[in-house]
Structure formats: C-alpha cells, structure tokens
C-alpha cells in the first residue's frame, strides 16, 4: 500500500493553483446589516467566480490580519458578485466588516457540504427553515432557491427566524420578498422594544404556529449550537425524521481542506464532512457530549 501511494504521487499530473493561496477579490458592495454585521459583495480580480452551493463557506483573507471561514450568503439566482455576511467577532471578521468599496479581500473556496438545495431530497415536500441571528446568512441562498422551486409538488417553505432584538434582524428585505413569493415567514425576538407588535419569544415558539406536514418536511437550521439543539428536538417532537433535519455546525476552521485538524467534531472534519450535517445519526449525541 505504501509503495502504491508513493507511486501514485509520482504519477500525479502537474499541480494546479496553490490550494492555500487566496484569490484576490475586490469589494464591490458593503451593506451594514446591523451594528456588527456587514454584507460584502466580492468580485474576483481575475473575473472568474467559482460555483458554490448554499451552505458552503469560503475562507476570506483580510490581508495582513488573517483568514476566517465565512459562509456564502449569495443566492445562485443572483448574478454577479459573491456575498458574504460577516459578524464582527474577532480580528479578521472585524477587519472584513471595516472593508470599504475597492478594497481587496482574499477568497479561497468554496468548501464543505451544502444544504442540498437543488438535489432530490429538497425538490419537493415542505421545508422548515429555522435561523437564529446571523444563522440566516448561510441559509439566505437556500431559501431564495427554495421559494422559487420550479416544481415543488405543493411543498411549502416556512422561514422562522429569531434575533436578540429587532435591531439585530438581518435581511429584512429578503424576508419580505420570500413572503411575497409564497413562503410562510415568521420573525421573533428575545427582547422587544416599545412599539414592537411582532412575536416575542424563543425561535422554537414559532413552530407551534406552522402546519408543515411532518411526513414530507425537511428542516434546515442554522444558529447558535444550543438553539439548533432545541429546535431540532422540537422538530423531532413534531414527528419530523431526524435524518431530514439538517444543521450547519461550526468549529474552528483554518484551512477548509481537512488538513489543519481544528474543525473536528468527533468523527467529522466539519470543513470537509460539514458544515451541514444531519441531526439524526450521531450529531444529536455529539451535541450533548461536553467539550467535543
């Protein structure tokens, strides 16, 4: 086996682009979503934009600061620039949030498993999308495609999103557009200011108000891990197959290629096997085990 491996290496064709080398992109759009969340639109200086699937992520380089894993928040229905919605939680994300039009940002990717939108298991049937906070970002492209499924065979799309307070809600225009396109959209906040007449409560409390068909439902969840855990449990209680509940998991990521070892969650390298994983199987257990 060893000899075969070595032989295989020798027989390899010339190497392609350096996988750890970012491709310079120009910032062609900056939109402040909340006080600490910014959406960057990026265009490759070389013109070529790699294809991606919603749920995948890129490694973004703020030159001179470092690199961080950021989900793609574009829809494949949108032409042009690649969008990433970044929350300022550390040095790299802070630098990305500070980027201005014309700045150059490095992009490597896309990496990881997507939500599977466009694939057979999401072509029909009800889809319940549950997002917490910035968790709506990696779901944006998926929802946009789902509400425009060409032949959904009566399957509906429910978009439930929660935020700390109304000022932290992102993609308000999109939520409205998805509602107009036929999705059931519900928003809740943990803390309501005066004058707020919307829902107040945990995002799971929105599940009571929807009438999805558990037999056909696929759920896509992204948010803080505890929120995803409790949402998934509530969906299982509703009779939804745990294998049809998909979560976007997060761990430290430094390469996106399965080489750096930081993003392990038990048997998974999340950059390679995730970030989207089914709740059913061993993820439900892994999420309850301490310090995995």
């Amino acid at each position: 086996m060893l000899a075969e491996t070595a032989a295989a290496v020798r027989g390899r064709p010339p190497l392609g682009p350096e996988p750890l080398e970012p491709v310079p992109h120009r910032v062609v759009g900056c939109r402040k979503e909340t006080d600490d969340v910014t959406t960057l639109s990026l265009e490759s200086l070389s013109g070529a934009t790699p294809t991606f699937a919603p749920g995948q992520f890129n490694m973004l380089t703020a030159y001179g600061v470092g690199e961080a894993a950021i989900s793609v928040s574009s829809s494949r229905r949108e032409a042009g620039a690649l969008r990433h919605t970044v929350r300022d939680v550390g040095p790299v994300s802070a630098a990305l949030c500070r980027a201005r039009l014309g700045d150059v940002v490095g992009v490597r990717g896309p990496f990881g498993k997507s939500w599977g939108v466009g694939e057979a298991d999401l072509a029909t049937g009800d889809v319940v999308v549950v997002a917490g906070g910035i968790g709506l970002a990696p779901l944006r492209g998926a929802i946009d495609e789902l509400v425009h499924r060409p032949d959904a065979d009566g399957g509906r799309v429910f978009v439930l999103t929660g935020a700390r307070d109304p000022s932290q809600l992102i993609f308000g225009d999109d939520l409205e557009a998805w509602g107009r396109a036929g999705a059931v959209v519900a928003v809740t906040v943990d803390t309501a200011p005066r004058g707020w007449t919307g829902h107040v409560g945990l995002v799971t409390s929105l599940l009571g108000g929807i009438d999805c068909d558990p037999g056909t439902t696929t759920a896509l969840i992204c948010g803080p891990e505890i929120m995803m855990r409790f949402t998934a449990k509530a969906l299982v209680d509703r009779g939804i197959d745990p294998r049809r509940i998909k979560l976007s998991m997060e761990r430290n990521m430094q390469c996106g290629l399965g080489w750096c070892g930081h993003c392990q969650l038990g048997p998974y390298l999340l950059c390679r096997d995730g970030p989207v994983l089914p709740y059913g199987g061993d993820v439900a257990r892994l999420m309850t085990e301490r310090e995995r």
Binding site: L2, T5, A6, E18, L257
Partner: peptide, 30 residues
Amino acid sequence: LAALAVLDRVLLDGAVTDPDYAARRADAFV
C-alpha cells in the same frame, strides 16, 4: 514509513492535495 502513509491519507488522498507535501514526498528516496 507507516506514519508517512497515514499522512499521505490526510495530505494527498483527500479531495485536494497539499502540493508542497506532494512534491517533497514524490521525489524522496526511502
């Protein structure tokens, strides 16, 4: 050598090959 074969699984045999590792590995006489 067994350990190098294990590293090969990580750095050569995934979806993307580490080019530096591959170049060093390919040429080495053992």
